[in-house]
Write a protein that binds this DNA or RNA. Structure first.
Length: 894
RNA sequence: AGGCGCGUAGCUCAGGGGUUAGAGCACCACGUUGACAUCGUGGGGGUCGGCGGUUCAAAUCCGCCCGCGCCUACCA
């Protein structure tokens, strides 16, 4: 407390101003020391089966992109955690960091401007680890400053040995269950990252002009019939793939082609020979391809003929499979065209943009040039469509053929949809996104990545027969590139083997977070003996109580986690899922580092306090995005100030007082505000119970500002003045109302505003609670139990008390309006209030009289109707009033 | 193209069959009051995107349309 804050006010234990810069860091430290956020598996609550585990996203460690949107979603999750803790649950709230796989690699590549292949695996991994540690530290600092009530003894990171162990264990379990397959298949491939991908790693790009090229395919004369055309025309956006063409396709009922079942087409350019400088070879050198009939071809599109190549898109794969076409691969892993016979096309990259703004690859330019030169090109037309992009680097996705590990999922759509229906979604409508994703699955989950920073597969391959040789469980975690295989090939007995060089998809680990939590997060690295390591999921922690995450990763994190839960444990991984939205900028665009429209949460916390930032976060409705507006954060600070001042006010009249020395006789105002508060508690509780923190906060705010501060405090003031017309029992009732009302309000706001409420609790209420006072507000009991009882102010208010209260508010509002009309300030006492009309229309008038006069600063009222009085209606009662101010004290004259 | 969400005061958003549709910010006027000027009191401001339907009653439910956002699919 500074001298400037000292005051002669009776409430001297509270400084005049609230200083979040001083208070918040102090409580961060104190909570740690008090162990308020610690998980205690042996607590009474835990033993009673009331454990609440929460699974929040392990953020990527590329911490430089932290913005208020991140702070928002983690705050929203934590509101519920604090509520549940006060509700008496044993909270299991660990924090993880995702420092694994491609996202980290991309981050490191960009930061250090390096590429795969130009740095040793070890150096690269070391850089990743370094960034990982630094990133985690930045996150932890922010999360602590934000007041997240994480048990910081329980952290995991996805590259730590135990997470690697877990991922490899997951792999082996799926091998044992027959879910894991090794297949050489066409797969989604990112040529920039030079790795295969899963369907979930692909997103669709913006609409762009991707010109349509008309290309002529000549009919091979030896297959032509008398009435067949001499050529067919196809249209394609991928002319560079013409040399990889393996068939033309048409609809089976298309009359134009129905008679041409035996016809073959010459693939353009395939007769050219490099050693003759691109000159044409013998016509017999053309590669020829069949015409196939396929229902998926739209006869109305273009010429009704469609080119099938290996491979341009998933449609090609489908037709290639169905019609058992040959395979012609002309794309290498880096996305370069491999066509030695076409030197001007050979080695050209498919996805290097030509100069200028349009996406137009150098390979495409070269191919168009060749087709034009050899007169196959019959036109180019504008065409708008979207490309499928790798979501980590925005490079258009290609298709490669390579052996990969797949988790077979396509046959599980039904059970996975059933899991989605079993899960409680908050909000409910988000379930639809999950359903759609599962219904639209087209690929099994490819978990192989041709990268080097990730979880290794616990697998070697026999050099004799290529059979995979799996590590044993007790060898995990293991890196086969570092440890030689100790076993002979189970198929051929050979002892000669090579390691699997690929690493796992990062989601292979992230999808296990509920299992990591239940198994290994308790394992304290610094003191492995401190808590038991358990092999099996603990039922109180798995399935967890809730998963909290944003909507855009329903198809990835949520889907994969549900799938893993289904496969490993035949259960859901959690009971509930709460979906949060995005933090948007003022214009409504998603905040991101790339867009440069982000606000640094640390700055906001420094300026306005974590509570104010949390207040803003609580403004979102469930599942909806929220714009970041500094005005709203200021609104939070405004609430803090009001809370501080109103509590200070209450304390003023509670100093040196112990409740219960005098029997209380509550006035109409007491009864009314107590009833209002009970209703507010019920509303705030219902909100939190449905994860609707926003409803809860608004209910509390509405009561606090509108009923408590604006009305009750104004009415009760008078009781503590010298010469008050209220008796000792009424004064006692006022004090009781102030005490228990403040106590309740602090608890209602505690989950959203943990710092200021904790500070106020400790400086005020705690002293009144005696020996049983909780050490922290955040382990104090929530004012309404799960069975519905509200533990404040006894029995619910009567209907009469609430009706009387409304009359009281109407009367006071009318006086206030009269003051404004007469330009009479609220501080100036009134000599008398005249009332005219049938006073019986004011229900409970006699009961509220004293509170009314007290709240109006009036000496009394009468029913005279003097000339010239200005009458104002009281509510809708038909009764009117007029005010007469006390004489002005003459202003001191100079 | 399909699905989901949204469209309410100048701005940002609640509300989601039942009095006269709300809040915060902004705006106007008044007022410095023994908690609070980081404030209080009072006030102005809305055809609830459009059209049609159901109903005693529609911002709310249904249908169609328009605009925006997102998710998914896609014209080869």
């Amino acid at each position: 407390m500074t001298d400037a804050n000292k005051t002669n006010n009776p409430a001297e234990s509270l400084p005049k101003n609230y200083e979040h810069q001083e208070v918040e860091p102090r409580w961060v430290k104190a909570w740690e020391e008090l162990g308020v956020h610690r998980y205690r598996p042996d607590s009474a609550a835990a033993k009673a089966g009331k454990t609440y585990a929460i699974d929040t996203p392990p953020p990527y460690v590329s911490a430089a992109h932290l913005h208020t949107g991140h702070a928002m979603s983690y705050s929203q999750a934590e509101f519920v955690v604090r509520f549940k803790r006060m509700r008496g649950y044993e909270i299991y709230y660990p924090m993880g960091f995702d420092d694994n796989g491609l996202p980290t690699e991309r981050y490191v590549e960009q930061k250090y401007k390096i590429q795969k292949g130009k740095i040793t695996r070890k150096d690269f991994v070391d850089l990743c680890l370094k960034e990982t540690r630094e990133g985690a530290a930045v996150y932890e600092q922010l999360w602590r400053a934000l007041g997240l009530s994480v048990d910081w003894r329980m952290t995991y990171s996805t590259i730590q040995p135990r997470a690697v162990h877990n991922s490899q264990q997951s792999f082996l379990d799926l091998v044992a269950k027959g879910r894991m397959e090794r297949r050489e298949d066409p797969i989604l491939w990112c040529p920039a990252c030079a790795t295969s991908l899963a369907q979930a790693d692909v997103e669709s790009g913006d609409e762009q002009n991707r010109p349509m090229h008309a290309v002529r395919f000549d009919v091979d004369p030896s297959t032509a019939t008398a009435d067949s055309p001499q050529s067919g025309k196809i249209e394609t956006t991928r002319p560079e793939l013409v040399p990889a063409c393996v068939a033309l396709a048409c609809h089976p009922s298309d009359k134009r082609f129905a008679q041409l079942k035996t016809i073959r087409f010459r693939v353009p350019l395939t007769n050219l020979r490099a050693n003759e400088a691109g000159e044409a070879g013998d016509p017999g050198d053309f590669r020829t391809i069949p015409l196939v009939f396929d229902e998926t071809v739209d006869p109305e599109f273009g010429t009704g003929l469609m080119m099938v190549c290996t491979f341009g898109d998933p449609e090609d794969i489908a037709k290639w499979r169905k019609h058992q076409l040959e395979t012609v691969l002309i794309l290498d892993p880096q996305g370069r065209i491999v066509t030695p016979n076409l030197p001007t096309l050979h080695n050209k990259r498919v996805h290097v943009q030509a100069k200028g703004s349009q996406l137009y690859s150098e390979a495409r330019l070269a191919a168009v040039e060749l087709l034009r030169e050899h007169a196959y090109l019959e036109g180019i037309a504008d065409n708008v469509s979207r490309a499928s992009l790798h979501e980590r680097c925005s490079t258009p996705v290609e298709i490669q053929v390579a052996p990969q590990w797949f988790i077979r999922l396509l046959d599980l759509k039904e059970p996975l949809l059933a899991r989605g229906r079993e899960l409680n979604w908050y909000p409910e409508f988000m379930r639809e996104r999950y359903e759609q994703w599962v219904e639209n699955l087209r690929w099994d989950w490819n978990i192989s990545r041709q990268r080097f920073y990730g979880v290794p597969f616990p697998v070697w391959f026999c050099n004799g027969c290529d059979e995979p040789i799996f590590a044993d469980l007790d060898q995990l975690p293991i890196d086969p590139t570092m440890t030689a295989c100790s076993k002979a090939c189970p198929k051929c007995g050979s002892r000669d083997s090579r390691p699997e060089p690929d690493v796992m998809d990062t989601w292979m680990t992230s999808s296990l977070t509920p299992l990591i939590n239940s198994n290994w997060a308790m394992w304290n690295d610094k003191d492995p003996e401190s808590l038991p390591i358990q092999d099996q999921p603990r039922p109180e922690i798995y399935p967890a109580g809730v998963r909290v995450q944003a909507h855009e990763i329903i198809r990835t994190w949520l889907f994969y986690t549900v799938a893993k839960g289904h496969l490993h444990t035949e259960s859901l991984p959690w009971k509930d899922v709460m979906i949060s939205g995005w933090g948007l900028d003022r214009q409504g665009k998603k905040m991101s580092k790339r867009a440069g429209n982000f606000v640094d949460p640390a700055e906001v916390i420094g300026k306005y306090g974590a509570d104010s930032l949390r207040y803003w976060s609580a403004g979102a409705t469930l599942g909806n995005d929220l714009r970041y507006l500094e005005e709203d954060v200021k609104g939070g600070r405004r609430l803090l100030t009001k809370l501080w001042n109103s509590t200070r006010f209450a304390l003023m009249y509670l100093a040196d007082w112990q409740p219960g020395q005098v029997a209380e006789t509550p006035t109409a105002a007491d009864l009314w505000v107590r009833g209002k508060l009970q209703q507010c508690v019920a509303d705030a509780t219902t909100g939190f119970e449905h994860y609707e923190y926003n409803r809860s906060l608004r209910a509390s705010e509405l009561f606090f500002w509108g009923d408590w501060c604006d009305n009750y405090l104004e009415i009760v003031k008078d009781r503590f003045k010298d010469g008050t017309r209220f008796g000792a029992g009424e004064v006692e009732a006022g004090r009781q109302t102030l005490l228990w009302g403040t106590w309740t309000l602090l608890r209602l706001f505690a989950p959203i505003l943990p710092f200021i409420t904790e500070e106020l609790y400790n400086r005020t209420i705690k002293g009144f609670l005696g020996d049983k006072a909780p050490a922290s507000l955040h382990i104090a009991p929530w004012p309404q139990s799960e069975s519905g009882e509200i533990d404040v102010f006894g029995a619910p208010a009567t209907a009469e008390a609430m009706t009387n209260g409304q009359t009281l508010l109407d009367l006071i509002a009318a006086v206030r309006a009269a003051r404004t009309a007469g330009k009479i300030g609220g501080g100036r006492p009134l000599q008398v209030i005249h009332v005219r009309g049938d006073i019986n229309n004011l229900k409970g008038f006699s009961a509220v009289q004293l509170d009314w006069l007290a709240g109006s600063r009036a000496e009394g009222f009468d029913q005279q109707q003097p000339e010239g009085a200005e009458w104002l209606m009281i509510g809708a009662s038909g009764v009117e009033l007029a005010i007469v101010p006390a004489p002005q004290e003459p202003a001191p004259q100079a």
